[in-house]
């Protein structure tokens, strides 16, 4: 018997680590991976609640999130490729042409 709050704690930890990754890594691909990690953390919370409330809605949401994530990855990686072509780097710190 595992309290559901344990799962949620894990979810929070993973989400925080994902957010941290977005903030501290410069490699655009790793930043992207961190975003995927955050999505997974959210998914984990969904499934945990789905189990708690004995409803499939949470799982279906996970299903949709996965779809969106797939689409996101497809577009996002395409963007990274396009950026790399013009900048010859995937260091997000190089992309500062919007500096005010």
């Amino acid at each position: 018997m595992v309290p559901v709050s344990y799962y949620l704690v894990v979810s929070v930890i993973l989400f925080t680590l994902g957010a941290l990754g977005v903030l501290i890594r410069r490699n655009a691909l790793v930043v992207f991976m961190s975003i995927e990690l955050m999505l997974n953390a959210a998914n984990l919370a969904f499934v945990a609640f789905s189990r708690t409330f004995n409803s499939y809605d949470g799982q279906l949401f996970v299903f949709f999130v996965m779809t969106v994530a797939a689409a996101e990855v497809a577009v996002g990686l395409a963007l990274i490729v396009a950026i790399f072509r013009s900048k010859h780097s995937i260091d997000v710190d190089q992309l500062s042409s919007l500096k005010g």
């Binding site: 018997m1 595992v2 309290p3 559901v4 709050s5 799962y7 949620l8 704690v9 929070v12 930890i13 989400f15 925080t16 680590l17 957010a19 941290l20 903030l23 501290i24 945990a48 189990r51 708690t52």
Partner: peptide, 26 residues
């Protein structure tokens, strides 16, 4: 980033343990 992440974590834990207070067992 570390400070913010820590804050976020604290908030999450605080929410789960104090506010939401989920005690269901799985």
């Amino acid at each position: 980033a570390f400070v913010l992440a820590l804050l976020l974590f604290i908030e999450g834990i605080y929410w789960l343990s104090v506010k939401a207070g989920t005690t269901a067992q799985i």
